[in-house]
């Protein structure tokens, strides 16, 4: 699915990713953990093509294609989905209209027919119901006036509708109560299949209780300093990052 080799990236003069090597096989969920400022969010942005970051070296292959050569929308069409840590507000843009435009753009890229407003609403309502979202969320402007939890659920709704191959969840669990956390986890679990993988960026073990990863990686100073199974997350929860950092130093 995803094959990252020697990836380095910087913002301005500041080098942030300093050689990431990471392979996520088909159907697997990998967690990325690490202290603040370790480069976790940058990894998500670089994979999805945010222009503020300059890739200075390395390669990213996604299902056989060179991901770094694609525009952000082409990466989305190829199946990369980034759930934003702080979802962006779009004043005046109706949520349903936004979702339908996005869904149709991706369907178009896949040579599928576009959905009209009625067809879309039918599909969307199934998902809002499953995510316990009120229907009026579709009518409101994208993320405008949404609570933190609503914004995160809106990200999961988008993910459910766009059906990506690779979902990158950037601290989607932060600021969520336990019920919302479970909804997010269920949203990802529902997509789990041999052709779906996920990179779950998180600070905490608690999301991983509901969304059990195949592998856990610890990112620090722009490098993966340790990898392990789900037990690594539990260990970190207990001991903090200090031990791992010291060990790696």
């Amino acid at each position: 699915m995803l094959d990252i080799r020697g990836l380095t990236a910087s913002i301005g003069d500041k080098s942030i990713l300093r050689g990431i090597d990471l392979v996520v096989p088909d159907g697997e969920v990998h967690a990325i953990m690490g202290p603040n400022g370790s480069g976790k969010s940058t990894l998500g942005y670089v994979l999805s093509g945010r222009e503020d970051y300059t890739v200075t070296g390395g390669s990213v292959t996604f299902n056989g294609i060179d991901l770094l050569s694609l525009e952000p929308e082409a990466r989305a069409a190829a199946g990369v989905f980034l759930a934003f840590q702080a979802p962006i507000e779009l004043p005046g843009v109706n949520n349903a209209n936004f979702l339908r435009t996005a869904l149709n753009a991706i369907r178009r890229a896949h040579g599928e027919s576009e959905l009209d407003a009625m067809q879309f609403l039918k599909v969307a309502r199934v998902e809002t119901k499953r995510l316990s979202m009120p229907d009026d969320m579709l009518k409101r402007n994208v993320n405008v006036g949404f609570s933190g939890g609503e914004k995160k659920r809106n990200e999961v709704l988008q993910m459910a509708l766009l059906r990506p191959k690779l979902a990158i969840l950037d601290e989607t669990d932060s600021g969520l109560d336990i019920d919302a956390l479970k909804i997010v986890a269920d949203g990802v679990n529902a997509l789990r299949s041999p052709t779906f993988s996920a990179l779950v960026i998180t600070h905490h073990q608690r999301l991983l209780d509901h969304l059990v990863p195949n592998r856990v990686h610890v990112l620090a100073h722009g490098r993966i300093i340790r990898s392990g199974g789900p037990e690594l997350a539990r260990e970190l929860e207990k001991t903090g990052y200090a031990g791992v950092l010291a060990e790696a130093a």
Binding site: E71, R75, A76, I88, L90, P91, V93, N141
Partner: peptide, 29 residues
């Protein structure tokens, strides 16, 4: 805003469509 544009493009919209969407939102009132 660059982050609005990027958000739309990450969801698969072309840059032109993203600008249209945002401009239409800007004019909604």
């Amino acid at each position: 805003a660059e982050d609005q544009l990027f958000y739309c493009r990450q969801r698969g919209l072309s840059e032109e469509d993203a600008v249209n969407l945002i401009v239409n939102g800007f004019c909604k009132e």
